[in-house]
């Protein structure tokens, strides 16, 4: 490993150790495990309740997955089209302008009223959270396709459809991936919100229950799970994005 990476890794390890150490010290000093549990207590609880955590993670993951994929299936083609056809883009902006600045969590009461508590509401909230970031990413990627390449393709006799498929979409991939990544983050955030309010199982529910049962160690374990999943998903998408960038046009 070259020197600067070694140094960075060194600091990361030191930081981790320092963080856990300080946490342990703080919890020991505060000496109120019902309010501020130490790292060992959290780790033990996480192990003890691992089945519940995995089940909850699975449920939450599924909801986010469906919501995110569903929203993206709609947002990506729409975004690509908007990037290619400016008048469409303008119309879309005006149409969605106000709606997009409303946080997904604000939709929750309405959805609860119309659809009721349950998986559908959670999935819809996720989809709402993911939709606009993905749309924006796809649109940006599409509109940034180098005009020189597009003209060259047309010049060589490619039909508009061919140009779209062979040039614009590959060029749009990096921006689209960024949008997908942001969308995933927002979908995850929206999901936790939805579950806190009322859903069957899931990590959000778990944390809420933990609070009811006055078990902050479980709450923290749940939070760390949420964080870990969000971080991994983001990481995987980031790698895909890098792959697209290296091979792609941008």
């Amino acid at each position: 490993m070259p020197a600067p990476e070694r140094a960075a890794a060194g600091w990361a390890v030191a930081g981790f150790v320092a963080f856990v150490g300080l946490w342990a010290l703080a919890s020991g000093w505060i000496a109120r495990p019902q309010v501020f549990p130490g790292p060992l207590s959290v780790a033990a609880t996480a192990w003890e309740r691992r089945l519940d955590l995995v089940d909850a993670a699975g449920r939450s993951g599924l909801r986010v997955g469906v919501g995110w994929v569903g929203a993206s299936a709609l947002a990506v083609p729409l975004g690509w089209a908007a990037g290619a056809v400016p008048p469409l883009d303008d119309e879309l902006r005006r149409f969605t302008g106000l709606v997009r600045s409303i946080p997904p969590f604000a939709w929750l009461p309405l959805l609860l009223l119309w659809v009721g508590i349950g998986d559908t509401t959670s999935v819809l909230v996720c989809a709402l959270g993911a939709f606009f970031p993905v749309l924006e990413g796809a649109r940006t990627g599409s509109s940034q396709a180098p005009p020189a390449l597009l003209h060259a393709a047309r010049n060589l006799g490619a039909s508009p459809a061919r140009v779209l498929l062979a040039v614009r979409i590959p060029a749009a991939l990096p921006g689209t991936f960024t949008g997908l990544r942001t969308g995933a983050t927002f979908a995850w955030m929206s999901l936790v919100a939805a579950e806190l309010v009322g859903a069957d199982g899931g990590l959000g529910q778990l944390i809420l229950d933990a609070r009811n049962l006055a078990r902050p160690d479980l709450a923290i374990a749940g939070m760390l799970c949420i964080g870990a999943i969000a971080w991994s998903v983001s990481g995987v998408l980031h790698q895909l994005e890098r792959g697209a960038r290296r091979w792609g046009v941008a």
Partner: peptide, 21 residues
Amino acid sequence: RLFDVPVALARPIPSLAWIPL
């Protein structure tokens, strides 16, 4: 850089998940 780890851990956690704590 010591702050790196706690910040990296905390960032992916949605703010709403902090409600119970």
